[in-house]
Amino acid sequence: MIGITSYGAYIPRYRIKVEEIARVWGDDPEHIKKGLLIYEKSVPDLDEDTATIAVEAARSAIYRRSIDPKEIGAIYVGSESHPYAVKPTATIVAEAIRATPDLTAADFEFACKAGTAAIQTCMGEVAMGAIKYGMAIGADISQSAPGDALEYTAAAGGAAYIIGKKNLITEIEDTFSFTTDTPDFWRREGESYPMHGGRFTGEPAYFKHIISATKGIMKKVGTKPSDYDYVVFHQPNGKFPLRVAKTLGFSEEQIGLGLVVPMMGNTYSGSSLIGLAAILDQAKPGSMILMTSFGSGAGSDAFSMTVTDGIEEVRDKAPTIAELLKNPRYLDYALYAKHKGKIAV
């Protein structure tokens, strides 16, 4: 059986509250908080980017399971904010965890689902016996144009997963994907900020793809919503995942543990993966978890997995999501704009 051997996450310590962004743009913060179910979001430090976030998450995953990095045969980093257009983030991660040189590495891009696509690629290579362990990372310092609705949610963070056949903390029963050409959100080459189709990002994009992929995995594995203890969906805001859960027949108890977006925002490629990490921080052996990501453009990857006894050995060996969210430093909009490079000088 293939599954997750270890995981690690990273969230920068800086935050900005919805009230502060709304103050600048003349919006009603209560309307935003109620509408998006989001209260604050993480902001990278001046010297943090997708590569540094990916490295911190990767090191946490290595440390949690004390894995020899030389046994990692593949590293894939999914992001839509890679620091270089040409020069892989995955090479920086590989060097920083001392996994070089006998491995393959590449950067993935599929909006917010590039990290789960990386997990599927690792599963394939582990299954064929080409590698012992593969590392899949989803990390982003998400961009949003000043004044755009996205600014309330676009956050920074990431998570790394080590996929293998041995020392598992979850066994992955199967994976199922649903992909179409749906232009709901995009960023053209050389542009600083993404564009989106407003309300079009809902029904034909997020909901259609997540519902189809989730139904697809349950049909493939032969499960129903009530079989799962926990479910995690991509979290562009707090409202969408709650609504899609209800539509699919999942309860608020099933989705609650992995719903991390209200206090940290949407970490794009890190979003569903950080939600999964929050579940693994607490899930008991035998618990069943369903995860479905969503990437604009558009596609969803769904995974059905069961937590093993191995979780108890590794859970406390690296910082949990709750610990990473502790002691935030709040920024005003001006300092936030400086941190995000939104002030051109």
């Binding site: 010297d47 590569a51 270089y84």
Partner: peptide, 28 residues
């Protein structure tokens, strides 16, 4: 130790990464 950007050769040049330090807290 923490992994951070140490600098860069302008907006089109190479980015330097490396080690900085952070306070050692219980969680870390």
């Amino acid at each position: 130790p923490v992994f951070r950007k140490l600098g860069e050769d302008g907006p089109s040049g190479i980015i330097y990464y490396g080690t900085k330090f952070a306070p050692l807290t219980e969680a870390s």
